[in-house]
Design a protein around this nucleic acid. Structure first.
Lengths: 319, 319
DNA sequence: CGGAGCGGTGAATCAATATTCACCAACCGG
DNA sequence: CCGGTTGGTGAATATTGATTCACCGCTCCG
């Protein structure tokens, strides 16, 4: 955009949003028409010159949050009210709310792991505002899942997150799930970037983990993902959820399956080693999986919606 | 406020600001009247649930900023367009803009020095949004100046800043200027808090310094401040500005006057020792003082307005 | 028990903002 | 040099949002 235009837009935006002047007043003062002021304002909005954040009022759900913190021994819980008719909206709102949570208490990590295939997390990143130099590196901790289009989205999201935090992205541009363990080794042997990303996962300060039920996720049909049969076999071994594609049972224990060796991504041990494990997830369908992840200690910071929080609180191991 | 009301307000605010729904749509969806939605929105606004920040587009004034960075050897310069008819407005706008700058690249300091008697800085703090745990302590680096009412404002501002950053405030509730050096020692001997604050000034990561002309500032009439005669004597010794009440001459050198011993506040040596010295100042009247502070290296991060920036760039020692 | 007073509400209305539309200027390609 | 096209503008207007106002349900005394 024309810089002088942008300057004017900033000026107008400040007068409008910070000083609280009417558009007509601004128009008069700067000798413009009101319509121009209106247009400049939407311009400023589009250009990201104006950031509007709806903060999550702290302690509004202190009852639920406390119940979950105590019940599952978590270090931090944020419960947000979301208004959603369907799952898609829920995921979107939850992501945005999580972004607000993160904005409130900045990430502050040298090294941040990110699971860019999670819809919720991608929405979260989309809704984030820049926090320069909050992290040094952003590491993708799971390979690509689903169709190529999704891979683009994931890569872009990682890039955006890195940029927002003023960090270097470390991509893991390899399939998240391979058909054969040997293939995995071959791929890794060839791909230095991927090896570097996986090595970086050894030493993360924070990781944004994806959690889900042990089943085929709708947008991840077919490619680069476990098949319905594979999921079924994991379920038959007791899996009720998966954390970064590692299966856990009802008591949070890892379910040992041959499928583990097909995943290119962070290992359970690496995950455990990370001090701050942030999960953003909600929706009735995900509740058992989230519960398992919490019980097993795979997540110690949780952002979820009111409904799921209630389900989780009711099913907490300690009261 | 009623928590359920606040919850509703947050919900509405998210739908409105994040999702971009019309008030009427929200009303329909939540089964409220449009007027209630409107009211809830202003409620959310008042309660600080909605934060609107107009960011300073980076590099919009890169020409001027570069000129100043190179010309004075500064580590960072932000030039903002302010629309102001009088000095009061300028100060307000500049403060708000500086807040936006700080929001963009968070403070990130264990220990932060703050000069709460500077109008510009107070406005800056007023316009800041919370950034939890960005600092551990906020230290007042200059005693009280002016009338008691102003002292309250200063103390409140310090408290607010500390709260915004999740830090502990260290107050310096002593006169900023005393009539006799001996009195200063007596006061300090009695006041442990003050001694602690001054000691903390030894080890600051960042300091927000106040800069001004060597003259009586209008709102600081009379009490706890240098008199017109004292300023005149400093000027006769070559002072063209003052940084935290220490006089500097045209070449940025400290002007040695007996007045130095009358100040209760950070010493020039302590100031020098602080790695990041942030000055927020503007206005034609202040330009020579700012220039002196820059030349002398008393400030290495500057936030100023376009007009002042141009004056400063024209008078830069290196081009 | 009654009624004054308060806080909160929605319908209607007024004010503010977004959008449309006609117009103009600058910039091509004939 | 002249249509034609594009992009940007303000006046007028449509749309959206804030405010008024009359009303309701409470509570708190008398």
């Amino acid at each position: 955009m024309d810089p002088s235009q942008q300057r004017l837009a900033t000026k107008v935006a400040r007068l409008y949003h910070v000083r609280g002047l009417r558009q007509a007043e601004i128009a008069a003062r700067l000798d413009l028409s009101q319509s121009r002021v209106s247009r400049l304002l939407s311009l400023a909005e589009d250009a990201g010159l104006v950031r509007t954040v709806v903060v999550v009022p702290p302690g509004l759900h202190s009852d639920l949050e406390d119940a979950l913190e105590v019940g599952y021994g978590l270090s931090e819980v944020h419960v947000v009210d979301v208004v959603a008719d369907d799952d898609d909206e829920l995921v979107r709102d939850l992501g945005q709310a999580a972004a607000a949570v993160l904005t409130g208490s900045p990430v502050r990590a040298r090294s941040l792991g990110y699971t860019s295939w999670s819809r919720t997390l991608r929405h979260c990143v989309d809704a984030m505002v820049p926090q320069s130099s909050s992290a040094d590196v952003v590491v993708e901790v799971l390979g690509d899942l689903g169709a190529p289009a999704l891979q683009h989205a994931a890569a872009q999201s990682t890039e955006r997150l890195a940029q927002l935090l003023g960090a270097e992205p470390l991509y893991l541009r390899a399939p998240g799930v391979v058909s054969d363990p040997a293939l995995r080794d071959v791929l890794l042997a060839q791909d230095g970037h991927a090896r570097r990303a996986l090595a970086a996962a050894d030493d993360l300060d924070v990781v944004l983990v994806g959690v889900g039920p042990p089943d085929v996720a709708p947008p991840l049909g077919g490619d680069n993902f476990f098949s319905a049969e594979q999921f079924a076999s994991a379920r038959s071994l007791g899996a009720v959820g998966q954390v970064c594609l590692h299966f856990v049972d009802e008591s949070g224990e890892l379910v040992d399956t041959p499928l583990d060796d097909l995943v290119i991504g962070i290992t359970p041990a690496q995950l455990r080693r990370t001090p701050r494990r942030l999960g953003v997830a909600g929706g009735a369908g995900k509740a058992p999986a989230i519960r398992a992840a919490l019980v097993g200690g795979w997540i110690n910071v949780l952002v979820t919606d009111t409904g799921t929080a209630q389900l989780l609180a009711a099913a907490a191991p300690r009261h």
